[in-house]
Amino acid sequence: MSDDGQHGMTLIAFVGSVFSPYYTWARRAGQADPENYCALNVAIYSKGASRWAMTERGKQSCSRDAKEFVIGPSSVTWDGDSLRIQIDEVSTPWLQSIQGEIRVWPEQLFNFSVPIDQQGAHRWGPLAPSARVEVNLTSPNLQWKGQAYLDSNEGDEPITEAFHTWNWSRAKMKDNSSLVFYDMAWPDQEDKLLSLRFTPQGQVEAVPSAPVQTLRKTGWQIGRRMRSDTPVSVHEQLEDTPFYQRALLNFSYAGEKLLAFHETLSVPRLLSPVVQAMLPFRMPRRA
C-alpha cells in the first residue's frame, strides 16, 4: 500500500498454481508436475489504472534457483538486499500491458513456518512481515512508495483437499509490529485460528484473539468475518470474485484503531463447475 493510501498492489508468484483449472485437469489425469503450472498474479488497485493479470506458463518458459524465479517474460529476484520483481504481463479481460519493476526491502527477515490445516499438510509463514516497497511501472504509468508485506505458502496437496473457508488479515500496529489473523473454518469441525504479532525486533508472539465480527456479504454473496474488538467496516473493496474477496477493513485491537488488508477464500465456490468453467477466461495459459 502506498504511504498516501491512494494505491495498492498484490503480487503472488505460483509454482503449481492453486487456482489453475489446467493444473486441476492435469491432476485428474495423473500428469501434474507443479513446475509446469507457474504464474505471476499481478493485481493493481489504483483509481483509473487498476489492472489484473494471471497468465500461466509451462515449464519450458520457467526456471528457478535459490535467487531467481523466471516466469515467462517476468521474474522475481533476490539481490541480497531487496526482492526485485520485473513485470511484463498482459491483463485480462481488456488485454492492457503491465510493465515495470517493483522492489521490496525487508525491514526484518523471519524464518518462521507453521501448519495451517488440520493435518499439517499446508504451511505458512511471513518472510518479511514489515517491509518498504517502491513501485516503478511504465504501463500503467505509476510510481509510488509505501509499506509492504511478504509471506510464503506451501502444501503437499491441493488446497481443495484441506480447506473450506478462510479469512486472513494483516495490519500494521503503531509500534511497527505486524498483526496477522489466519482464521479457518470447516463444517462440523472446530475452527482454527492463528493470532500472531511479528515485532520489529524479529520476535513472533502469540497474542489473544479478538471476537468474531461478521461483515456483510460481498456482491458475489461470499460470507466473511474478521477478528476485532469492535464492529468492522469496509474501508475499500479491492476485489470481489465468485470465490475470493480482498478488501481494506477498519477494525480495532488492543486499544488501537487499525486498517487491515483482508482476504476471504471459499473453496466450495472455487470447486463450483460454473466457476471452473469461467477460470480459463480470467487465467489464460501460454507456452
Rank of each mutant, 00 (worst) to 15 (best):
Y149Q: 01
F243P: 00
R197I: 06
G72T: 09
F14C: 13
T10A: 13
N41P: 00
S61T: 12
S17T: 04
D156G: 11
G146R: 12
Y45S: 06
S113H: 10
L249C: 10
E239H: 10
A121D: 13
R225A: 08
N111W: 05
E35N: 15
Q213N: 10
P187A: 09
S61G: 05
G125S: 07
A148F: 12
S272G: 05
R170S: 01
P200N: 06
Q213K: 10
L248T: 07
D240M: 14
I44F: 08
F181E: 00
D183S: 09
S50L: 06
P273S: 05
F69M: 13
S209K: 08
N36T: 02
T92F: 05
T199E: 01
N176C: 05
E134F: 05
L248K: 06
H7A: 14
S82D: 09
F14L: 13
D79M: 03
I159V: 13
N41I: 01
I87Y: 07
T55M: 02
V207T: 06
A247H: 07
G8E: 03
H122I: 07
G255A: 13
M278A: 15
P21W: 00
S195F: 02
Q189R: 15
S50K: 02
R28Q: 15
A43G: 12
L265K: 04
F110S: 05
A185I: 13
T138E: 05
D188K: 14
D117L: 10
S74I: 08
W105M: 07
L196Y: 01
R246Y: 03
A260W: 02
L196P: 01
